[in-house]
Amino acid sequence: MIEISDLTRYYGDLRALDHISLSIKRGEILGLLGPNGAGKTTLLRILTGYLAPTSGAVTAMGFSIDEKPLEIKKFIGYLPEEAPLYKDMLVYDYLNYVAAVRGITRERKTRRIRELTDICGLSEIMHRSIHELSKGYKQRVGLAHAMMSDPEILILDEPTSGLDPNQIVEIRDIIKVIGKEKTVILSTHILSEVEATCDRVVIINKGRIVADGSTAELKQSSELEYALNITLKGAEGQDVKTLLSPVEGIKEVRELGATNGELAFRLVCDTAKDIRDEVYGKIKQRDWILLEFTQEYKSLEKIFRELTKES
């Protein structure tokens, strides 16, 4: 659907993108993650034809962005960061204008605007001027703008920044619904967002792709720290250590502390083997009360930090 090959972009001497290659399939919801200044926005801007790459090629739907930029723009709905809309226009006038530029016929236009009003929850603000809107509403108008022509590819630059938690959930739901049929590319630095919405995660740092895969794949592929957290009542720290240390697969039994006679431990494990059965079996032999028994994978956050930290 979208093929990016060997894409490089310089701003003067600064290399914002460094030989990026990426292939995106139809129906994928792809999350672009990276620290500030990693090149996320630059990449999206090149995909939408706003910026030209210094070298490299982009094709979407079989069209090259150098040769047929207008054809590609017809398939792409784009919401830039901060939704920079015309301030002096009414919301209704603005959507009407976008519909006209998108070549939507007069008969379909009213229906389409009404649909988008429902999806994005705009009915209350249709006749307000855009500069009066709160950030959340502006973002929603921007989303309606991007979805106007029901595009095959939807590109959203930080779609949920500045929204309240309810709005974030709403927008995520909208994105998930669209993502069933269309391709969605969104950039964010909110990690939970990626876990909640995206099928695939691409992490970029300093203009390079440092990780690419589903969230589950990412968690497995990196040198995973896998741990069991247990809390016991009526146990002695030393007893627990001598009991559990011999279990094969446990690298370390770490005592986290005690409150009201409840002892918390963290069992750092190898990933290769599932040791939950064995650990539970051992604990059951004793007269301890098991209050908590949870497994913890290394979070996406840790992976992100490892991949993008300054070296």
Partner: peptide
């Protein structure tokens, strides 16, 4: 205001 980015990415 940045609306230029939106304008240019419309099919015109």
């Amino acid at each position: 205001i940045g609306s230029y980015e939106i304008l240019v990415t419309l099919p015109v």
